[in-house]
Simulated assay, not measured.
Amino acid sequence: MEKKKNFPETKDFIYWMLILIIFIVVISVWKTNEPKVLNDQLSLGATIFSILLAVVAVILPYIQANETARQHSQVLSEMNKISENIIALNNMKHELSENIKLQAAIADDVAKSLEKMKSATSDAETKERADEGLIIWSKTRNRMEEMQNQSILPSQIIVTNSKDKDILKWNKTDT
């Protein structure tokens, strides 16, 4: 279905204004007995119109300056929100890094326990399970080190705007 166009569009308004102005000029010329009076009236009308245009020319920059100031304050507000979110992300990264260090220390203790268990036992099955545990520990330790060395770069942060709130997303890319 096509949308109906709203009737008085800008061009329609301009056409009607031109027709009205022409009609007023024709009536004025037709009803005026002296051309000098008509000339004086047209001069007065042109002067008043020029004054109105000058007033509009003074007011319009003021309105635009206010709009620009409003937009500027909105941009600053959004930038402050983004900065706060980035600081929060960096704090989270620091906390995660500390947690990873703690988990790595626990994993190291487990690895030491597995080594002690492997050397203290003579059972082949227990030694095999200890070796499997050490392999898993090695993989886990490597992953923890990778996570600890990873940093969030500004190019990895994507800012999107939803209807309800601003969302910061971490675009995980291999660097």
Rank of each mutant, 00 (worst) to 15 (best):
K31M: 14
L44H: 10
K127C: 02
I158Q: 15
N85S: 12
Q41I: 09
T68C: 00
E9A: 08
K11G: 01
K116L: 14
M1I: 06
M79S: 15
E146M: 09
S138C: 00
E115D: 05
A104I: 04
P61V: 02
N149Q: 14
Q148C: 00
K112N: 11
E146F: 05
E9S: 15
L114K: 07
F23T: 05
I63E: 07
N142E: 14
A107L: 14
E132F: 03
N91Q: 09
S155C: 05
A54S: 06
T32M: 09
K81N: 11
A120P: 00
W170C: 04
N66L: 14
E2D: 09
E67P: 00
Q74I: 13
M79H: 12
D123H: 03
Q74K: 15
K118C: 02
N33H: 05
D40Y: 11
I135H: 03
L53I: 10
I24T: 13
L53P: 02
W16F: 03
Q71A: 02
E125H: 03
F23H: 04
K163S: 14
K81W: 04
L18V: 07
E2S: 12
E34D: 15
L168S: 03
T173K: 15
L53W: 06
I87E: 08
A107D: 10
V29R: 12
A107S: 10
A120H: 03
I14D: 05
D131E: 15
W170I: 15
K112S: 06
V58I: 15
M17C: 10
A124M: 06
S155D: 14
W16R: 06
T173I: 15
T47I: 08
A111E: 07
I14G: 01
L153S: 14
K118S: 10
A54L: 15
W30E: 10
S97N: 11
S97K: 11
E95L: 11
L52G: 11
I86E: 02
K4V: 12
E9R: 09
F23D: 02
M92G: 02
D164R: 06
L89Q: 03
E9M: 07
K81M: 12
Q148M: 10
D131R: 03
Q148Y: 13
R141L: 04
K93T: 15
H72F: 13
N91E: 13
L134V: 01
I14A: 10
L18C: 03
N90D: 02
S28Y: 03
T173P: 01
V37D: 12
P154A: 09
E128H: 02
T10R: 12
K165D: 12
S151E: 13
A130H: 01
M92P: 00
I100G: 01
S77T: 09
S122H: 05
F23N: 05
W16V: 00
V29H: 05
V159C: 04
M147P: 00
F7E: 05
K165C: 01
A69R: 09
D174L: 11
K116V: 07
A69E: 12
T173A: 11
K165Y: 08
E2R: 13
G133P: 06
E146C: 01
